[in-house]
Structures are given as C-alpha cells and as structure tokens.
Design a protein around this nucleic acid. Sequence first.
DNA 1: CTGTAATCCTGCGAGC
DNA 2: TGCTCGCAGGATTACA
Length: 286
Amino acid sequence: MPELPEVETVVRDLRPLLVGRAITAVTVGKQKLRRPWVKKWGGYFTGKKVTEIRRRGKYILILLSGGGKGVLGDGVEGVLVVHLGMTGQFTVNAATDPLPTHTHLVFDLSDRKHLRFRDPRRFGQVLWYPDLAAVEVCVTDKLGPEPFDIPAEQFEADVRGSKRTLKAILLDQSVVAGVGNIYADEALFRAGLHPERRGETLSLAECDRLRMAIETVIARAIAGRGSTIRDYIGGSGLRGQFQNEHAVYGRTGEACVTCGRGIERVVVGGRSSHFCPKCQPRGKVK
DNA sequence: CTGTAATCCTGCGAGC
DNA sequence: TGCTCGCAGGATTACA
C-alpha cells in the first residue's frame, strides 16, 4: 500500500507527535512479522528519546538517543527502521483508544500516548540498528535516488541501458527509491509511455519526460496526503486523498481524462498496470 | 540479463 | 445468505 507519498505523510504526521518523547515501554504481539525480532528488544528502547524522524524511499527511520542499555556514546544510539509493506499502519493514539486487531507493536510514550504498528497482512518490517552507519549498510545504501533529485545522467543510463520494461524499471528501488505500483502507472501516463516499452527504446527526450513525470506525480501525491485504496491511513489516522486524482490506477474501463478512451489493464512483471492505449502508445511516436 | 511464478499473509468485493 | 475466486500500495527467491 504505502509508497513514498504515503510514507512521507506518515513521517510528517508522526514528527510533531514523537520527537522529544521518550519510549517508556514496549509491548510485542505474538504473531511473527517478516524478520526475527525478540522480546528483549524492549530493553533497547525503553528510556530512549526520539530525536528525529526521517524517510528514505519507503522506509521510516526513527532516531533514538539516551537511556536503554548496551549502547554507548553521544548522538544516535539506536534507529528503529520501519517498512509498512502492503498494509502497515504506524500511528500515534490515545492510550484509551480501542486496540484494533493485527496490532503487533505498542510503544508507550512519555506523554502517555501510544505509538502503534498495525499490519493485517504482516508484510511489513520493524527493524532495529545500533546507529545510522548500520542502517546505511543494511538498508539505505541499496536504494536509488529520491524522486526529487534524480541525476538525469544516471537515470538515462539506468533506463536506456536496460532491456527491461519501463514498469519493471520504475518498480526497481535501486533505480528510484519510493515508487510503487500506483505511482509507476501514474508517472507513465503523465509521460505518455506504455508500461511495456523497453528502457533501451526510449529517446533522451522521452527519458527526461519520464524522470520529470515521476517527480511531479510524487510531489502532487504528497500534497494530497497519499492514496487510500483500502487500508492506508496517515500517522494521525487520516485517510489519503490522492486516489481521487488518479488518471489510470484503478480506473480500468473508465474514460481517459485526456482523450476519453477506455483505460486498459495488463499484467507486467506480475503487477497489474493501468494505461490509456491512445495516450500511451506501445511504440515510439517520434 | 530477462521474465514469470511462487512465497510471505489477511480481507474484501464480485459473482454465482 | 453463503460460498469460492481473484485480487490487493511490497519485496525476495527460485527457476526457465
């Protein structure tokens, strides 16, 4: 569910609710998530204060300092890394709010509120690293640039040097970090490119158009607080709004906003892809 | 290198 | 009403 705009919205929501607060207790559910995580984790968190919250691609980084045990030195003394998978929700709630099913983690905060991680499908991840260097090596170094500052030359090399479909390239987190199924389709529509075009067939102009389309679509989606198809909510529990502005995603059979033709759906790389057959021709136009 | 399919899960809407 | 089927914002792995 959550792609970059949704994750960014969660981060912006959580920032004022978490920074400066300490974690006073951690409750771990019984069901397994995607990584081995142990009950004694609680010992790493308790007493630590949230100093900063960052986003990189689809990952949320919560920087902690002080307290706890087993970690020495100043500055960052622990980083909680969260990936929301398909159905993850990361919210701050009043302690008295009813606990929904599939809530796997509850962090008690020093202001008596609760930070909760809920994830029905359990594709999400909650990871713990001792410092930022470890996060870089294990997580963020594997990611490509953020959509807002994609180096044009690097993008051209990645796209035009590949025989893969554009859809597969856009979903590759090492090419651009944070793009998922919705925004890949929306960016391809905006750039007027068919999802099954091969990267190597793009002209420089088309490649540039695609790079700018990604940036624009992601920026607008953030402004709309992301897209709620089913499960997604922000860090304060609000739904997204950008689903109302989708040009192609989830609009199979409906009229193209530009030309009126019916939006089609095809499976590319195992993921459903939505496109306008007229605005996104299969081959080169010029 | 490519693509495809399966895998990890739960839940919901469509269709019968 | 109740059932099965297909599908879902992700990512990784095995295999052809």
